[in-house]
Design a protein around this nucleic acid. Sequence first.
DNA 1: TTAGGGTTAG
Length: 544
Amino acid sequence: MEAQIKNPILLIIGMKIVMSYTSKTSSLRYAICKFSVSLRFFSYSQNQSAKKNSRFEAIGDAVALFSRLITIHPLPSVVEFNMILGSIVKMKHYPTAISLYKQMGLRGITPSIVSLSILINCYCHLGHMGFAFSVLGMVLKGGYQPNAVTLTTLMRGLCVNGEVRKAVDFHESVVAQGFVLDEVSYGTLINGLCKIGQVRDAYELMHKMEGQMVRPNVVIYNMMIDGLCKDGFVTEACGLYSEIVGQGMSPDIFTYTCLIHGFCSLGQWQEVTRLLSDMVDKNVKPNVYTYNILIDALCRKRMFRKAHDMCNLMIKRGQRPDVVTFNTLMSGYCLYNDVDEARKLFDTFVEWDIMPDVWSYNILIIGYCKSKRIVEAMNLFNKMHCTNLVPNIVTYSSVIDGLCKCGRISYAWELFNAIQADGPSPNVITYNIMLDALCKIQLIDDASELFNLLFERGLTPNVSTYNILINGYCKSKRIGEAMNLFKEMHHRNLVPDLVTYNSLIDGLCKSGRISHAWELFYVMHDSGMPVNLISYNILLDAFS
DNA sequence: TTAGGGTTAG
């Protein structure tokens, strides 16, 4: 059955393609190129106006056009098909692109390295890295030459699927085999490494790429600057800024925004001001991200008047506040326990023509829970279900925490089980919340069972998980089990913190094992842990 | 002549 083209503009373009094909191949390419641009436009307008159906129509049109092209005699070249597949990938319809790729094969169209790279990209986006690499196998067996795009796509796939290390190893092996990578390939790896906090390795890689005759561009410098700033190495990030300038390149809005973020985190306002005036000199205009960072920094310092002034300034300079701006302000108010002020802002979203997102709801739900106003938190949680917003694991964890802290543990437990069965999978934070609740009501054996379940679900406990359980065991006077967990932390390369030591020292003291408590106190001291007042009070209490 | 990388908020 012939597919219908629903959009009139695309119908015209589609007809143009069929007509022009009979005359000239170049016209066909021109028409498809226009089609591709139109698809991108529709995809864009879908984002802008949130019209649910336009994306569906655009994808429908793309498929319809593909179906028409595949029936033309003689068949258009693979380039035309690649252009349609590329547009479908841009619309994130990966399974559709894969299915159309397969149809191409059935029609006897020989894929090019571009088609195969698109296919690899689809599998990577779907998290099917095994399939992605089997396509690479096809590439090699078929005598194609994988290029920098093919290899970068795979490296990015590994990075976004949580296997950055494998991506780095893969890069090393392809370089050793003589494949040539470019600045995008290195940028992908550097970004992957920075995102998992391996900034040092990223930095080394940036210097290594120069040995491969690939020079870092501003994008790579920006990623490094961002990574360094987020790790607190703002001085080093500034060094890279100087390198950009020294090499005759121009720092852009990303460079400045990342650096401003770094200095805001350190509270170095003078540097922030200096960067802002530097931006004026270099004619780089702050954008909504830059303003949001500044507003966030002001809110964290409780400078709400100045934060609102900054909001007005951004409007005056032609930058519209967005949902992040409002979320940032709401978050600031909640940080200082003023959930009512945050709620007032939330209620003005409509006036600003801004749609609240999951973050907006989460900020308020957490705010209400913190103030023990569980009814209002639950009302918002229920209101979310009436919108198109899908609560995420942060929403559920916050609500579960709120319910636990208000003593409604059975309801919290019900929700926890519900999301285990069907919902956003609980993460280690959700488990910690439930574990804490169980320990607080002395159900330490149930907590221990839940702790085992955490491993079964493939999650990794963190220091807080151990602290919660150790504290639970200590409060139940089961010091032996608490000490076993303490040892287990070491095996898992988890470094005990002040909370771990204080819980154990308290537990040991309250069980009359004061000499053991002292021993542990010295272990803590020797490990370089800054001892706080709580530690001394625990020991003083024990002595008195 | 189609395919791959970068900034914000819990």
